[in-house]
Design a protein around this nucleic acid. Structure first.
Length: 948
RNA sequence: GGGCGCAUAACUCAGCGGUAGAGUGCGUCCUUCACACGGACGAAGUCGCAGGUUCAAUCCCUGCUGCGCCCACCA
């Protein structure tokens, strides 16, 4: 609503407008930081600052900034900016991941729109095309991170497919191969028929689905009619795989099937005899019919069974998921078609024996969501056990600490049960495997050379490179050292490895963190990072996972720049009717109801502050737009408090290095004491990975202490104080504000820079607040006396205000206030602070201060505020009947509290066993309650007086 | 089948062995010269249920209920 006149963002000297407008401030300062080079790490040998390093989890080159990124980037940036201000040589290493499958799919989709497939282009042209695409759209997410304020060292940004990183990948592969830890084998692997590639175990997600348990009979060959058993009924969730069956297994002890041991079955559709085998591992007598069809070619259990019994492994699928030539009349059908066709054929053959509903786990590809098929295939694998051992030990020995610690168990469980890692992918986009097949002798040469000239065994030159590429996560696993120049011994590697903190979402603990641990320990001999900080998943306000299908995704940029809800839903649910989409959105974000037509532009700082304010140990972070709005208002508060201060700071220069003032006035001593506590809490919070505590301490300090009390108390000084008082207060105001801005800077970098630059200060200052020292307790001055005195003052003022408000005294009505206290020191204090009390309570003149006891003035209401009795004279201002009711209600409540307190204090065991300070505290509370009671009883008399 | 986590104010969440906190929302009053993106004051919770330990339990222990996640080859 503010009619905004200021449109010139360039002129610092311009009048500050009434409200904070992030859009006018943020881009300008980011540009400034880049120009000043403040994000850049140093490898200068003369630079002796201690290093602090975070490697950014490289976002996918296909990605754009989502809430999860915003959360992680914000947390990391807070850590980085904090350490930078503390004088560390900070490296925040950014980069982008080539994201094999994801990227290939994007470009293939693009080709499809042109009516082409990658095969039309051929491998080389296709890869070229991907690079083109990357050049065009691959830099988007970095630009979005800049909007957020991320202070990464962009000049060092890396891409996992950069030439030097390709060198690192080849080096790692060749070494592991040489050590026998990478090998090639033919075994059952997960195959995505849509992506047409092998997958690793972690890329498969099991999803519960409703299926059926279908029963059918295999006829027994040469059945002994006398024994009556002419068939064996098996139960399966996948009838179509019977085309690949090479045995049926029963439990050796199952009495039902003893007579069938050693017999054979006739395959109804294929010319194949199927042996009946006994296997106690595979078969659970109680499940199904107790007879299991065995398909070694398409089931992990059956594969293992097949190995135990030397069964033939028949592959019935081609790579696109259709049935192959081994399937007779079913050849060419998709799996889904085959399932019904096979069932129909079984029924027609009279072999169907029933079915029932059954819940099962369907393995799906994390990329395409296609059902993954186990098929037998020749792939490259990493032997994980020898790598996992050191990674386990490092965490057990706390060389790397995982925070929150409960994830250690998960990590431990994963690494102790780890299977070998299938690292080859049948894609074109990625690091091609440095293995060369010899057409002459069949030997495979694994080498660092890009184009080896001869087979290492037969020396002939007939070599073809293995067409497969490596799993994206293979190169990601090397990231903490490959980005620093490994395998070369670079100054960067020397200085910044091991890195300090690894901050990422818990969802990639297995995919990435565990692998970096293994690779780092193996190749560098040292852990890749000293702490792993895991954050939760950002979900919608009701706790549901964000997803395009659900239409509940929230774009960080929409909160930063502001957006109408109708625009947002058109983006997230382009195909749904607007009303329907809006309803979905509002349901996912109930607090949006109080926000009119859309989000106000909150700015990056507000979003950052919001993200910091959530507890990092929560697994789910239910993002509330209303909360963002709350921090938007906080930014406005910071802005306006500074605007107020600047009005009084003419000529006052502040420097962070300057001595902390040594003021005399209570308000000044107090705010410096609170400042100490707040900045200390902030650093403690950040160091302990509790940004919610750190940011919360500063929020509370700034709003509830600096603004609500200190700034308000500055006013009477500036209006009516003596010159020395004014000078002292001006100095403390400038000092506290400047320190507060520095303390807030890691959380809210833009607004703090903008305002800090406006505070008059000497020429020796750093160019940017980002380079100024982070405040410590010494920027303030711990003063327990001031805190105690101020607490008395605040309690008295609050009590008096409360009386005003409860009795609905108009602000224009000045009241007469009398304060009574037994302690002469406190009397002196209240006397001395009279002008502040008068200003904040709005009384007629300074309050009268006296000893306790004596007659209560007629018409005065009495309230207890700690040791102080607060008497407010309301004669002629209130209604007696209403007052009586109010007093009686209060008395009732008080009596209840007092009973509880008395019971507690009369408990002999409590007196005997509780710590003394608890008893003292309880006595004090009781005493206070009793005084309140006496006063309230008096108030009943007071009501009578009012009636007179 | 294992493992982990969560249940606290209308909503989203902190917290803690000593008679419950924040933000938003809600109510009353106020356009007081930084800020109505504001101020003052206030209402609001049997801290999921049932036991146990303790002088004291929302917090620790046990069981139960309800959610959520991860891992796992029951066909």
């Amino acid at each position: 609503m503010s009619d905004d006149k200021s449109d010139d963002k360039s002129d610092d000297k311009s009048e500050l407008s009434k409200g904070y407008e992030p859009a006018e401030v943020e881009p300008k300062w980011y540009q400034f930081w880049l120009e000043q080079g403040i994000f850049e790490a140093s490898v200068d040998p003369a630079d002796k600052r201690e290093p602090y390093t975070i490697t950014l989890p490289p976002p996918n080159v296909t990605g754009s900034l989502h809430m999860g990124h915003a959360l992680g980037d914000t947390i990391e940036d807070v850590l980085i900016r904090h350490k930078r201000m503390q004088g560390y040589n900070v490296l925040w290493q950014p980069g982008i991941d080539h994201a094999g499958i994801a990227t290939q799919l994007v470009v293939e989709r693009q080709l499809a729109r042109e009516g082409k497939s990658r095969h039309d282009l051929g491998r080389a042209k296709f890869v070229e095309r991907v690079w083109e695409w990357k050049a065009q759209s691959g830099g988007r997410i970095a630009e979005q991170m800049k909007v957020l304020g991320a202070s990464a060292d962009w000049k060092r940004s890396k891409f996992t497919m950069d030439p030097e990183l390709q060198v690192a990948v080849r080096e790692a592969f060749v070494r592991l191969h040489g050590e026998g830890l990478i090998y090639r084998a033919t075994r059952l692997i997960n195959w995505c028929t849509d992506c047409r590639t092998a997958l690793s175990d972690v890329e498969v997600e099991n999803e519960e689905a409703n299926g059926e348990l279908y029963e059918f009979a295999y006829p027994v060959l040469h059945a002994d009619a006398g024994a009556g058993a002419t068939e064996l009924v098996v139960a399966t969730t996948r009838p179509e795989t019977m085309l690949g069956d090479t045995a049926v297994a029963v439990h050796p002890d199952d009495p039902r099937y003893q007579h069938l041991h050693g017999k054979k079955l006739k395959h109804p559709f294929l010319d194949r005899e199927i042996p009946i085998i006994t296997d106690a591992i595979l078969v659970d007598m109680a499940f199904g019919t107790g007879a299991v069809k065995v398909t070694p070619g398409h089931d992990f259990n059956d594969f293992a069974t097949g190995k135990r019994h030397q069964l033939e492994e028949i592959n019935i699928l081609s790579l696109d998921g259709k049935l192959n030539e081994r399937c007779a009349q079913f050849q060419g059908l998709t799996i889904k078609q085959a399932r019904s066709a096979v069932k129909k054929a079984i029924a027609e053959a009279g072999l169907e024996r029933g079915s029932k509903a059954h819940k099962l786990q369907l393995p799906r590809c994390t990329r395409s969501n296609t059902v993954v098929e186990p098929i037998i295939s020749t792939q490259w694998f990493v032997d994980m056990k020898p790598l996992a051992e050191p990674a386990l030990a490092a965490v057990r020995e706390k060389r790397t600490e995982i925070i929150p610690a409960e994830w250690e168990k998960t990590y431990e469980h994963f690494l102790t049960n780890i299977q070998d890692w299938c690292i080859s992918r049948q894609l074109w986009w990625g690091h091609q495997i440095p293995a060369f097949h010899c057409a002459d002798c069949g030997h495979i040469t694994v080498t660092r050379e890009e184009h080896p000239s001869a087979c290492e065994k037969c020396q002939k030159a007939n070599l073809t490179q293995d067409p497969d590429v490596l799993d994206t996560w293979f190169s990601s696993g090397l990231w903490p050292f490959s980005t620093l120049g490994w395998p070369n011994k670079t100054p960067e590697l020397e200085r910044f490895y091991p890195t300090s903190d690894m901050e990422t979402g818990y969802d990639i603990l297995f995919f990435w963190v565990a692998r970096m641990m293994m690779m780092g320990l193996h190749f560098m001999g040292e852990v890749p990072f000293k702490r792993v900080l895991l954050h939760g998943m950002v979900v919608d306000e009701t706790g549901d996972k964000m997803g395009k299908l659900k239409g509940n995704t929230l774009d960080p940029l929409d909160l930063i720049y502001g957006a109408e809800f109708s625009t947002i839903v058109q983006k997230t649910m382009p195909d749904a009717p607007v009303d329907e989409a809006l309803a979905k959105f509002r349901k996912a974000y109930p607090s949006s109801a109080q926000m009119g037509k859309g989000f106000s532009p909150s700015g990056a700082d507000a979003l950052r502050f919001t993200l910091c304010s959530y507890s990092p140990q929560a697994k789910r972070i239910a993002l509330s737009p209303a909360r963002v709005d709350g921090y938007r208002k906080f930014c406005n508060k910071i802005y306006n408090a500074t605007r107020f201060s600047l009005g009084y700071l003419e000529g006052e220069t502040v420097t962070a290095e300057g001595a902390t003032p040594l003021p005399k006035l209570l308000l000044n001593r107090w705010i410096l004491s609170r400042l100490s506590a707040a900045v200390e809490a902030s650093t403690r919070g950040i160091d302990a990975y509790r940004l919610d505590d750190g940011s919360g301490a500063l929020y509370h300090f700034f709003w509830d202490e600096f603004c609500a009390w200190f700034v308000e108390m500055c006013k009477p000084v500036f209006l009516h104080g003596t010159e020395p008082e004014k000078a002292e207060t001006r100095q403390v105001l400038a000092h506290a504000l400047e320190a507060a801005l520095r303390a807030l800077h890691p959380y809210a970098p833009f607004i703090t820079e903008d305002l800090w630059q406006r505070i008059p200060r000497p020429a020796s200052r750093p160019a940017s607040i980002a380079l100024a020292p982070y405040p410590t307790a010494l920027d303030g001055r711990v003063d327990p006396d001031a805190e105690r005195d101020m607490a008395v003052l605040m309690a008295a003022i609050s009590a008096a205000r409360s009386v005003r408000s409860e009795h609905e005294i108009a602000p224009s009505d000045g009241i007469k206030l009398e304060l009574r206290v037994a302690d002469p020191k406190l009397r002196a204090l209240l006397e001395e602070q009279g002008r502040f009390i008068a200003f904040l309570v709005r009384t007629e003149g300074a309050p009268a201060v006296m000893n306790v006891g004596g007659e209560r003035p007629k018409g005065a209401v009495l309230t207890v505020a700690g040791e102080v009795d607060v008497l407010v004279n309301l004669r002629g201002l209130v209604d007696a009947h209403k007052e009586k009711e109010r007093v009686e209600r209060k008395l009732k409540k008080l009596q209840k509290d007092l009973e509880v307190m008395e019971k507690r204090l009369s408990n002999a065991n409590f007196i005997k066993n509780a710590p003394p300070e608890v008893v003292v505290e309880a006595n004090a509370q009781k005493h206070s309650l009793e005084r309140e009671q006496v006063n309230l009883s008096q108030s009943l008399k007071w009501v009578e007086e009012l009636k007179e």
